[in-house]
């Protein structure tokens, strides 16, 4: 799920603590800030810290001036050979190819387990919105191929498409039968997306708070941190990649429920919006001397159901007879929203 969805979920979870509301009414924003920060923290740890220290065995860095698909194919094959020969986990980094402030050379890597081949093709130039630039689709028509030493099993359905910003890391894990299991972004959710890590972080911070301010703020901080951190883990389990939920007690990522892609628009928006409504509800319940009164169902009807129905009806009216294609989200790093927010 997207960063903002996680963030708002964290704030919503924090709002369920009456102590957070009381503190807020007394001018203390910390619990809500903590909730939001912990909601987004697992991804922050991975994308803004851990990945820069994650070692790779093979770096594929195509030349922007003369992109060579054969070079890419050969390097991928070499990484596979390394994993097979040395029977160890090999990390392969596929770097992006930047051509301009807003232009990236897209390329794709496909494994053909029937022919034991890897195929690489350089596609169009795309902008930071991943929209192809007109007239660049056939700049590099050649498909390069290289033989691979083992089958590469992809349980995760993200396409190995490299375009904007940081390219993906692929982990090649030797299996018992000699095949290789392909893990997408192995450094992501390796340890950070763990309920136990959230609890440990909560305990650590709680201990500090206990020394500074006493028992009550300490356990309140612990609960807030652990819960808001944990909600991120739970939300990500709805997707495909899954997480290592009980690190360090468990070693591997538990696959997700495949209910959604992390970049899907509607689930993300609904998460954000429902979080906002829940926050509103909790604030209402904690507000002394309200002159307006409403129930939870009323709030949901006015805030979610009726506007949703109106929006759906309008959309149907406007799109009748037309074929509307909405770009689906994928699970790659979603820096696209960041580019929108830049400036």
């Amino acid at each position: 799920m997207k960063g903002f969805s996680h963030f708002m979920s964290g704030v919503a979870v924090a709002s369920f603590g009456p102590w957070a509301i009381d503190a807020a009414l007394n001018g203390n924003p910390l619990f809500f800030v903590l909730g939001g920060a912990c909601g987004i923290l697992p991804d922050t740890l991975d994308f803004k810290f851990y990945r820069f220290f994650y070692n790779h065995d093979v770096y594929v860095e195509p030349d922007p001036k003369s992109p060579d698909p054969q070079y890419v194919a050969d390097e991928v094959a070499r990484a596979i050979a390394l994993a097979v020969d040395e029977k160890r986990y090999v990390n392969l980094k596929l770097s992006s190819v930047r051509l301009g402030a807003d232009f990236w050379q897209q390329y794709s890597v496909t494994f053909d387990n029937e022919k034991l081949e890897v195929a690489v093709k350089f596609g169009p130039v795309v902008n930071t919105g991943q929209v192809p630039v007109e007239g660049t689709a056939n700049r590099y028509p050649t498909v390069a191929r290289a033989k691979i030493k083992a089958k590469v099993i992809q349980t995760y359905d993200a396409a190995l498409k490299v375009d904007i910003f940081d390219g993906p890391t692929v982990g090649l894990k030797p299996l018992e039968n000699g095949d290789l299991d392909l893990e997408f972004l192995p450094w992501h959710r390796e340890w950070s997306h763990s309920l136990t890590v959230g609890a440990m972080l909560g305990a650590l911070v709680g201990a500090g708070v206990w020394l500074a301010a006493g028992w009550t703020p300490a356990w309140q901080s612990f609960v807030t941190i652990a819960a808001c951190y944990g909600v991120h883990v739970v939300e990500d389990q709805l997707g495909h990649m899954g997480s290592n939920i009980f690190y360090p007690l468990t070693k591997l990522r538990t696959p997700g429920l495949h209910w959604m892609h992390s970049g899907d628009g509607l689930p993300n928006f609904l998460t954000v919006w429902i979080s906002c409504l829940l926050i509103f509800w909790n604030l209402y319940r904690g507000q002394p001397a309200m002159t307006y009164h409403f129930g939870f169902v009323h709030l949901m009807m006015v805030g979610l159901v009726l506007p949703g129905l109106a929006f759906g009806a309008l959309r149907w009216l406007l799109n009748r007879g037309a074929k509307v294609v909405v770009a689906k989200g994928d699970d790659a790093d979603d820096e696209w929203n960041d580019s929108k927010a830049a400036g």
């Binding site: 922007p64 001036k65 930047r98 301009g100 590099y140």
Partner: peptide, 29 residues
Amino acid sequence: MTVNKEALPGHETQSSEMNCPSCGRFVGA
């Protein structure tokens, strides 16, 4: 393999300072 390619949209009016003078690759700012 490379082919001659046209300048990307807007790049025909950009300064050469956006490319590295040594290797000619795009470096930006």
